[in-house]
Design a protein around this nucleic acid. Sequence first.
RNA 1: GCUGGGGUAGUGAAGCGGUCAAACACGUCUGACUGUAAAUCAGAUGGCAUUCGCCUUCGGGGGUUCGAAUCCCUCCCCCAGCACCA
Length: 413
Amino acid sequence: MTFSEDLARRGLIKDKTFSDLTWLDEPKIFYLGVDASADSLTIGNLAAFLLARRLLDANWKAVLLVGGATSLIGDPKITEERELKPREEILKNVEAIKKQVAQLFAGEHFTPADNYEWFKDVKYLDFLREIGKSFSMTELMQREFVTERMGEGGSGISYAEFSYSLIQGYDYWQLFKNHGTVLQIGGSDQWGNMLSGVALVRKKEGKEVHALSMPLVVNKETGTKFGKSEGGAIWLDPQKTTPTQFYQFWINIDDADVENYLKVFTLLPKEQIEQVILEHKNDPGTRKAQNLLAEEVTKLVHGQDQSGSATGVTKYLTGQASIGDASDEDLAEIRKEIPHTTAGDVGSIIDALVQTELIPSNSMARTVLNNKGIYVNGQNVTRDSFEPKDFQNGRLILRRGKAYKDSALIEIE
RNA sequence: GCUGGGGUAGUGAAGCGGUCAAACACGUCUGACUGUAAAUCAGAUGGCAUUCGCCUUCGGGGGUUCGAAUCCCUCCCCCAGCACCA
């Protein structure tokens, strides 16, 4: 099976500017850009980065761009104008994302880039003359985010966000000139911006470059955008979403999506995926496919060790092993992976819930407690304080709801 | 610049002097159901205390009033139209 066939079968290709897929089979140089709208990437960014990884594995060369300049403006959303973030905050975010990208691609060869490098000295008039002239207003006005936001019922759009596409287009031109990139990849929401670059390079250089977009990952059952329906964002930063929580997220994926996710979010060969899906269908209860998915993705993002400790910690969260029997090393791991605090042997459960941020406020905690949503060592409780027998060897696992990822370690003070 | 419409909790959207912590819908959280998930049903959804209650919210600031999300002034922002400009 050729590289391009593999991509196609994994469902990784939505739109492309080249007609023949085999164009991908001959390695060239591509680029992938992200903006730093937060201080960490999320699993929403993951699919594109894994595509980059696949290209690298197929001997392509990569330029990975973090948008120091574009982040200052903000990619226009279809609904409303973004709030302009302070420069210092964006600078911090950019640094964080750069580091994260470097970690994610540790051991791989790629060229890091930051569009701020070439934008910081761009003069407005020069930009208008060189770039602005190459863009058709009529065309820009037809973009979905523009038509949605202008006119009656629209939320309005600033000139800054309107121009975002030009900035990204300019990036492609720069990268083409300086690094020889001839392909840009990204999510299908970036398609319009990618085309801006393709068109600009054609106009300025008379050369043909290409773009490739991936379908947005959606939940098959609900049709919702990936990551949206699962509560808060799942971050790649282990400080924000610990490897165990990360691992648990993938364990909880429902059957309908698991095959698709295995294809998109892991590097496993197609045969292996088909095999595990087959096993999974025979006996869905064991959640073989989800287990494999969780293990693989956690390994890709957090590394082998973290993946191992995530499975280790999970043992205690699920009650497969008693928390009282945990070794000192295990405990140290657990403390890193899930929130923890101390409490007296008759301490308040509500305080513990709030301290560990399992629940944001006391009232909420009380409500959830009354709704039978709190578990101590896997046992449902409705009383509002711990009892001495709850502690096994001076510790217990406190959980909100059924999902194991919302667990915390409570140790006796 | 003028004229008109608008800015309400995570989102959409009611309310238009007291009975407003603010209808309703969606979302979110918890539970039941399910091997999961979804769907469905039930409860919860500003904060503190959970017993009467107290505190902070309806773009910002100021005022009128016993009392304002609701009235007045002013500022900011958005939408539409017109004018100006080209």
